[in-house]
Design a protein around this nucleic acid. Structure first.
Length: 600
RNA sequence: GGGCGCGUAGCUCAGUGGACAGAGUUCUUGGUUCCGGACCAAGAUGUCGCGGGUUCAAAUCCCGUCGCGCCCGCCA
């Protein structure tokens, strides 16, 4: 509803400016500070002062007089406060917000009939997912959900590097060493923990092993890569045996978040179908192509990138980026937009990729990157699969769930609500809260900011954390349940024993500032989705959930819903407000990938 | 050395041209006859890294500078 209000205000302001013969190119629309009564404001009078030969407050006055609020649906009045124009919401605005927000999919914008492929994580299938990588699936999944909520047709892809040197090395190591050659037991009973030991062993051997044997090993690795390049089925099968097993384990880990994918796209696919070879031919035709040091390269200096992009090694094999070019052209053929979530260490590669795609004649406007900074351990330590340093995501999630379970059990005795949580409830809540806290901690921060990972901070259940927001959802559910609804079903669903009496619901009855603030905050939700989606910044949703929770708690404190002395029509209207709140917060949490518990 | 990103309260972070720069955390105090106390209320801390500039208006834009991170491989 906020979007409709904004449109109406823009229209009204534009005609007022035109009527007074002022320029209409910049309306100066902004959201007012919290203590101002209006829901939308304009600072346009500042810019007009010179031209009008009058002080900004007077210009604002002229404009306010020119706009007839009676002709507007969502605006009750236009007031000035110094140089600012303030637009106050009408009862109709609040009433319509209340009505639309009681729909279960509130906040989901209209279908844009535009497809987007969101590629995220795409971690090399070499071993367990560690916390350094966890930012990718968490942000990526949220970006995908956000675009979905914003009305795009979204597919989530994991691009599998199954053709690089690392994988050839892994394959060689897996085939060469035996269980008894390995020094350590697997850290966990799952394939990637088992197999990563071969990878680490292989890398250590290549570094410190006897010179002759290392040479033999490197020849074997080279042979695997050549085989893949030639589309040799045997090489593919050998590599797949490692890749599929490790990837299977990693997928199980990611599913715990949960981060799930519509498709795992293997890069060998673009070698086997000939796309990569064809692409190499086209690259060689470019003016920027040079053959230097026995390798084919692209000189991108004239395009602002001073590092050459090597696309064909001297041994005739392709590189990651070469295959990724074919991959992206495939994306462009099949989707309207392509969004890639990647770490800042891939920035240069991404720039080269984009520039080269442009040279190949693609429209790169449809390609966008979400780049996030690395997660470090305290003390500046990095995380590495090859070296085996870092915190495994599985361990983080286990720890989070354990701490959440302790928390639930500690709180069991002094619960006010008498709803007898059983073992299954405790386990459910421990998972929802524990994993939710981890995700929220990561998704609520701007992707470009570096993070130092600290247990206590990530797993703080109070403060600006997932549980704080989840608690609001549980409170909503508690009230609705008390009133006879099944909070797990949409409020309008046929299965509900009770139903909201829409005749008795009237936004006019929401008289207190707390109720109106809450409703105005609910009204902004679709606009927040719209804005966050166009910026590809899911943390804006997290910021909104916190603000929303504050407003709801204010309402909860001031306005009883089910108390005996509440007028029945007020009760019904407040109940609708709670229902709207429940859908708003549930849908916001869903975008973030954080569970919305019905009790906790 | 070059490119990119970041620098806001003791700490973790919002805010990226407009209304007095905001939350949480921490500390103290108070709050449940009443829908859920993982909650709420009250109390305060800032050279927005630093220096210039543009503007009626700068944490926000521009230039310079310092600090931190990432990248600068025929790895991914």
């Amino acid at each position: 509803m906020f979007l409709a209000l904004r449109e109406e205000v823009e229209g009204a302001l534009e005609s007022a400016l035109a009527a007074l013969e002022y320029p209409t190119d910049d309306l100066g629309i902004e959201e007012p500070p919290e203590d101002v009564e209006s829901v939308l404001a304009s600072s346009v009078a500042f810019r007009l002062a010179g031209e009008a030969g009058a002080a900004p407050p007077q210009v604002a006055g002229q404009l306010a007089d020119e706009i007839d609020a009676d002709e507007l649906t969502y605006v009750a009045a236009v007031q000035t406060q110094g140089p600012y124009l303030n637009f106050l919401p009408s009862d109709a605005y609040l009433a319509m917000t209340l009505e639309t927000a009681t729909e279960a999919d509130y906040g989901h914008l209209d279908d844009r009939e535009e497809s987007v492929v969101v590629e995220h994580t795409s971690a090399n299938p070499t071993g367990p997912v560690h916390v350094g990588r966890a930012r990718n699936p968490i942000i990526g999944d949220a970006v995908a959900s956000l675009l979905d909520a914003a009305g795009y047709d979204v597919e989530r892809h994991y691009y599998v590097n199954d053709a690089g040197r690392q994988i050839a090395t892994f394959t060689w190591a897996y085939e060469t060493f035996d269980e008894e050659d390995l020094e350590d037991e697997p850290e966990r009973d799952r394939t990637e923990y088992d197999l990563v030991r071969y990878y680490r062993k292989g890398n250590a051997f290549l570094e410190d092993g006897p010179e002759e044997e290392v040479e033999d090993a490197e020849a074997e690795i080279e042979a695997i890569m050549q085989g893949l390049e030639e589309g040799d089925e045997e090489a593919y099968d050998r590599v797949s045996e490692v890749v599929d097993q490790v990837l299977g384990g990693m997928t199980e880990c990611l599913a715990r978040l949960p981060a799930e994918f519509d498709e795992f796209v293997k890069e060998t696919r673009f070698m086997r179908n000939g796309d990569t070879n064809e692409l190499v031919d086209r690259l060689q035709e470019l003016d920027e192509a040079v053959y230097e040091d026995d390798a084919w390269q692209l000189e991108l200096d004239d395009h602002g990138i001073d590092k050459n992009l090597v696309f064909l090694r001297s041994d005739g094999t392709t590189l990651y980026t070469t295959r990724d070019l074919a991959h992206h052209e495939w994306k462009f053929e099949n989707y309207d937009r392509a969004v890639t979530v990647l770490g800042e260490d891939h920035k240069l590669q991404a720039d080269q990729l984009g520039q080269t795609l442009e040279l190949l004649g693609n429209d790169t406007d449809q390609l966008e990157n979400v780049i996030f900074s690395w997660v470090n351990l305290p003390g500046g330590l990095g995380m590495s699969t090859r070296k085996g340093t870092g915190v495994d995501l599985d361990d983080l999630l286990d720890e989070a769930i354990d701490r959440a379970r302790e928390e639930v059990e500690d709180r069991l005795d002094d619960r006010i609500r008498d709803d007898d949580l059983d073992e299954a409830d405790i386990e459910r809540i421990a998972h929802q809260v524990g994993i939710g806290a981890v995700r929220y901690d990561i998704v609520s921060k701007q992707a470009t900011k570096a993070i130092t990972f600290e247990w206590d901070q990530a797993l703080d259940f109070e403060a600006q954390s997932a549980p704080y927001v989840q608690y609001v959802h549980a409170r909503c559910c508690g009230i609705l349940e008390e009133a006879g609804f099944d909070p797990t079903e949409p409020l309008a669903a046929a299965g509900q024993e009770e139903s909201l009496d829409f005749d008795a619901i009237d936004a006019d009855r929401l008289e207190t500032p707390a109720e109106q603030d809450l409703l105005e905050t609910i009204a902004r939700f679709p606009a927040v989705i719209d804005e966050a989606a166009s910026d590809l910044e899911p943390h804006q949703i997290a910021t909104y959930t916190r603000e929303f929770a504050d407003r709801f708690n204010g309402f909860y404190r001031e306005c009883p819903v089910l108390a005996d002395d509440v007028d029945p029509e007020v009760r019904e209207t407040r109940l609708a407000l709670v229902a709207a709140s429940k859908h708003t917060i549930a849908n916001a949490l869903s975008v973030l990938g954080v569970a919305a518990p019905r009790s906790m």
